[in-house]
Design a protein around this nucleic acid. Structure first.
Lengths: 342, 342
DNA sequence: CACACTATATGAACCGATTCACAACGGGAG
DNA sequence: CTCCCGTTGTGAATCGGTTCATATAGTGTG
């Protein structure tokens, strides 16, 4: 083995000693180079190089207070919806030379709390979070301690907290309205648990669409709860649907990943889409248009969502909190109408 | 506005004062509760609660040394391949109660360096990184300073550094061999720039397959460089291919995202797949099997990749560095053979 | 040549935790 | 009634930077 012994990291005083200057001067070279004469500056830089000195962020931060880093906690980094949001965040923050640390809570409140604490302890400027619970008191507490908090994909229930969200009631409504217009009278909703806000809101929207059409939501809509919001969850959900005594003619899925799983089962069972079963997804991910049956889906402005969230995070903390709501958009494709798009 | 004034964060001495004990005692309550009598412990906990005290991570770390956090830098968080790898990392690290901070370099060496430094300054236990450059001296330097470094998706060129990778030469070879077997004699390779190792290796493999078949790589293979490894890049690349004087009959894409874009163009142009143009992707992402023409793709053990990388990161730093190489696997579907799969 | 003033360098105090040698206390043994 | 020891609590030193009041050298002016 050729690994060098990992000796103690060089500190600023080591640098000062080898350069023959005081620690204050080294610090000045690092932070206000113009205050230092070129000759000493070079000497110090040489010493830094020689010792391969990397300043200790903890020490710096301890003294200086805060840093140009923000945290983001999403439900699942493997979900394209959230990664698109994360891209939006990164794109905005890097404009201000901020860095983002991304973490995924897996919808587990404990994990969320752990990351929240990790970020707070490390003194991030702010945290953007897709809450795993409906209760957000813990987030308000963080806010109260002086850390900027922006709710992602979730409108803030209180005025003191900034948030960026998409109108999920409208999204659920437009999807189901679309299916009703096509004549479906029994519609399954492959949904997540209702304590997740998005799920509850889309359900509300779905019921509203049915009611508006003069039908009884309890008769038309079948709530199928899936445990994981991905293709596996979608598979399980669709299998459950197909075993119902009175099989629905259409399925609305909580996201495109779940729809993907649902389509997989339908293909395996030889059920044609949309004639045997119409399918509508949510998120309009990249590949939705390219599936064997192009997927009708509710599109959300993901990149915008992240971008604006980062905007709010960077906003003057003294300014009023802001709640932004975007509107979703239905993208109709063959999985519901049976007509391929141009 | 109801925002509370963000007063200074409470410190351990504030807690000590309100609880009427010394700072040492508060610290003991936090870290060795058994050393403190129940009565005082309760008093301290009450004070902590009252002041909603959150220990300052920088201070703790400054004193204590290192923390249970690791960093991961990938090329693009929006790419399912990398997020699957990230999941593997998270799954392994959370077993040891470590937390992961994820960042994406966007293939930009400067951004990579920025995150590398950020992580190092914050004293992470180790960093897993998909290098944006072929040169890895800067990573060796980080290693030398005592931070564990594991190369992701890239075999280490030196024995002192751990790495986890997939054999990309083999991957390129099997993809092209497959196309040759099907009778294609002019094959486009929608590839990224060759200074990216994966791209170079797969190109090498592709040439080897051609040479092994007794043909001239320079005549059979057409190298088409795309700038971004996503659907947009794939679109641009396929448009370029279609304008060639002697249009290839098959296209091998650097990843499934690019293949997605390529398929999009082909559909728009009314070119049938695989008869007008066979397409092979790479990564075998979730949706590959569900595309309008199910995509032949080279599958990589993504989750394993991340999981093992995290394993190596957590390994005893004194133990020898380890290089792990996985083998890819060709998954044949209709986009190359024209025969739908079961 | 004295004086003011600038440019540069110094080093001690400080940020907020952890740690450890030491003090105080109380109970049991002799 | 001492002495010893274990339990509990104390507070100063420490980690590695930043900052700022202060010292010193050098420059130019009247």
């Amino acid at each position: 083995m050729t690994t060098t012994a990992p000796q103690r990291r060089a500190s600023i005083s080591d640098v000062a000693r080898t350069a023959g200057v005081s620690v204050g001067t080294v610090s000045n070279v690092l932070n206000r180079p113009d205050r230092v004469s070129p000759a000493t500056r070079d000497r110090v830089l040489a010493a830094i190089d020689k010792l391969s000195f990397v300043p200790n962020g903890s020490a710096r931060q301890l003294r200086a207070g805060t840093i140009t880093t923000a945290g983001a906690i999403v439900l699942d980094v493997a979900n394209p919806f959230f990664t698109d949001v994360a891209r939006g965040i990164e794109d905005r923050l890097s404009q201000d030379d901020f860095t983002v640390m991304l973490a995924s809570s897996d919808e587990d409140p404990d994990r969320e709390a752990r990351y929240l604490r990790l970020f707070e302890e490390h003194g991030v400027q702010g945290i953007m979070v897709v809450p795993a619970t409906s209760d957000i008191d813990h987030l308000l507490a963080v806010r109260r301690r002086g850390v900027a908090v922006v709710l992602l994909d979730r409108p803030s229930p209180v005025s003191g907290l900034s948030s960026v969200a998409v109108d999920d009631v409208a999204g659920g409504e437009m999807a189901v309205r679309h299916l009703l217009t096509l004549g479906h009278e029994r519609i399954a909703f492959l949904n997540g648990p209702h304590f997740i806000r998005q799920c509850a809101d889309r359900w509300t929207g779905a019921r509203r669409a049915v009611a508006d059409a003069g039908l009884d939501p309890d008769e038309v809509l079948v709530d199928v709860t899936i445990s994981s919001h991905n293709a596996d969850g979608g598979e399980a959900g669709m299998r459950e649907i197909l075993q119902m005594p009175d099989v629905p003619t259409a399925t609305f899925c909580i996201n495109d990943l779940a729809a993907l799983g649902a389509l997989r089962v339908l293909r395996r069972e030889g059920i044609s889409v949309p004639h045997g079963m119409a399918v509508v997804g949510y998120d309009d991910v990249d590949f939705a248009a390219e599936l064997s049956t192009p997927l009708t889906s509710v599109r959300q402005p993901t990149h915008q969502l992240g971008f604006r969230a980062a905007d709010l995070l960077l906003a003057d903390p003294a300014s009023a909190a802001e709640q932004i709501t975007f509107q979703p958009e239905l993208v109709v494709r063959a999985s519901s109408t049976g007509v391929a798009q141009a």
